[in-house]
């Protein structure tokens, strides 16, 4: 498996505490229909064509190259910022990233990942040695739907969440809201029930955005249209979470 990077985004204000540099890894274990980073689904390089020319999504770095690139903003990570690994599924690149994580950990750099947690349990165990903060997606929880819609094993997901929740690490749930998918009535009930067990874990909810549309076009793919969420449904969901005692906040990505 190749370990490619599609983007190193500096000065991210939304990907964890403080000012952060976010690294987007290419390749994911699932395929959410609403995905806003379609260039990060496959593990191999992909050609794209945009108005300003052709190019390739995905660049391979040595650990040292990646380190040098990320470390440029180290000065801005005090007091609480750091590096966030996203994707794709960052944890599926654990075998590659391990050495980099170690290097940052040695320097006391705060590390975060954004993960869907549809990954082998050993990778989660491994990540726990280095990562300080986990953003964990909550998406589709019905086993059958999860398999067909996302291509994921919901039991594995639930076990991984459980492992993380007992690790003592900081966690934050992120729930993408789309009425046709995550907020579809049955799933919404499952999600509410699921997060109720973890009331100590804060939740961020957000509406999907269409900023990935141009990336779909550049890959000659079609972005789904039924990804919207009415203000009413969004607010209703927010209130539900609040009522059952979850710490919930709204973010705009």
């Amino acid at each position: 498996m190749e370990h490619l990077v599609t983007n190193i985004q500096r000065m991210c204000m939304q990907d964890g505490p403080g000012i952060r540099t976010t690294v987007f890894m290419k390749g994911c274990g699932i395929h959410c229909p609403w995905c806003s980073n379609p260039e990060n689904l496959l593990f191999e390089k992909e050609e794209y064509a945009r108005a300003d020319g052709k190019g390739v999504y995905g660049r391979s770095y040595s650990i040292d190259e990646l380190y040098q690139e990320i470390i440029k903003d180290k000065a801005y990570w005090n007091p609480d910022g750091g590096v966030t690994f996203s994707g794709g599924e960052a944890l599926l690149h654990m075998d590659f990233l391990r050495a980099l994580f170690q290097r940052f950990k040695d320097q006391g750099v705060h590390l975060a990942v954004e993960t869907s947690l549809f990954v082998p349990e050993r990778l989660v165990q491994d990540a726990l040695k280095y990562v300080d903060f986990f953003y964990v997606d909550v998406k589709i929880l019905d086993a059958e739907k999860c398999r067909t819609l996302l291509g994921g094993d919901s039991m594995l997901y639930r076990r991984n969440v459980d492992t993380l929740s007992h690790s003592g690490k900081k966690i934050c749930f992120r729930i993408p809201c789309a009425e046709q998918y995550t907020l579809q009535e049955d799933n919404k009930e499952l999600v509410l029930k699921f997060v109720k067990q973890y009331r100590e874990i804060p939740i961020e909810i957000f509406k999907l955005h269409r900023m990935g549309e141009s990336k779909y076009q550049s890959l000659r793919k079609q972005m789904i249209e039924d990804d919207d969420c009415s203000d009413m449904a969004f607010k209703d969901f927010f209130e539900h979470l609040k009522q059952q005692g979850n710490h919930v906040s709204v973010i705009r990505l």
Binding site: Q9, R10, M11, I19, K72
Partner: peptide
């Protein structure tokens, strides 16, 4: 530039 940090650097 990628970010304000880049130009500050």
């Amino acid at each position: 530039a990628d970010s304000y940090t880049e130009i500050l650097n």
